[in-house]
Design a protein around this nucleic acid. Sequence first.
DNA 1: TATGAACCTTCCCGCAACTGGAAGGTCAAC
DNA 2: GTTGACCTTCCAGTTGCGGGAAGGTTCATA
Lengths: 130, 130
Amino acid sequence: MNIGEASERSGLPSKTIRYYEDIGLIRPERGGNGYRDYAATDIHKLRFLQRSRGLGFSVEECRQLLALYEDKSRASADVKSIAEAKLSEIDRKIRELTELRHTLEHLVHACHGNERPDCPILEELSDSAA
Amino acid sequence: MNIGEASERSGLPSKTIRYYEDIGLIRPERGGNGYRDYAATDIHKLRFLQRSRGLGFSVEECRQLLALYEDKSRASADVKSIAEAKLSEIDRKIRELTELRHTLEHLVHACHGNERPDCPILEELSDSAA
DNA sequence: TATGAACCTTCCCGCAACTGGAAGGTCAAC
DNA sequence: GTTGACCTTCCAGTTGCGGGAAGGTTCATA
């Protein structure tokens, strides 16, 4: 199957699929005309990539997950530890964003938002220790 | 003052300060030896940038904020609207990450994390509609 | 049979916001 | 005079693609 259909079936843009090939995540066959030819297992991998990227795994993490997926003798603990690391990373990001939210909300509430030039937001950014 | 001291006082790496100059955010004087020479107002701007970047504003947003900061006739409403837009963007990111967290936590809990190869995480990534 | 659209190919540039490193100039101390 | 810590510019790399050029292939239609 050509890349266009692979794109439709996997939910990934053709550009992305070519990129994944570039960085060695997938290796489709080539037809006599030079076109990429995707087999069912390739589509499977592409969908796997689409989902794991959607879950916030980096491409390198996806590479690890894909390797574990193809290694029938791997322990589920190996996969779990990657997922747990990602989980705590997500937690950290949520914490950081929440703090940011508080600070910014405080500033927004303090600002009158009128036609006058005095603005607590700029004052805070400029003067104090945020 | 040289870039090293400007770096210490602003909390920004020298590389970043040079980059901000490259993209036109600051324009320090130059000494006879070609060294950048930072005045107090430059340090002020750099700290402003350091804080607003830390609050999650993009460099382009920082450029706007800096322009508003320097424009004594601007209305505080202009600043407030930028901050409010950023606030809802942060909210959106938090929501997305929270959803992600739920999905991933569900998978992690479902996985035994032992020496056996069966792993619900990989099964989910591979088979179903995440 | 021609031709036009819709595919496909490779290649290279660009994004954000820096970071690292190479090659070289300057300055202050010993 | 020489060491070492500064400073300079420039170039390349990062992440994960997207845009677009220049060209080949395939298929339907006039």
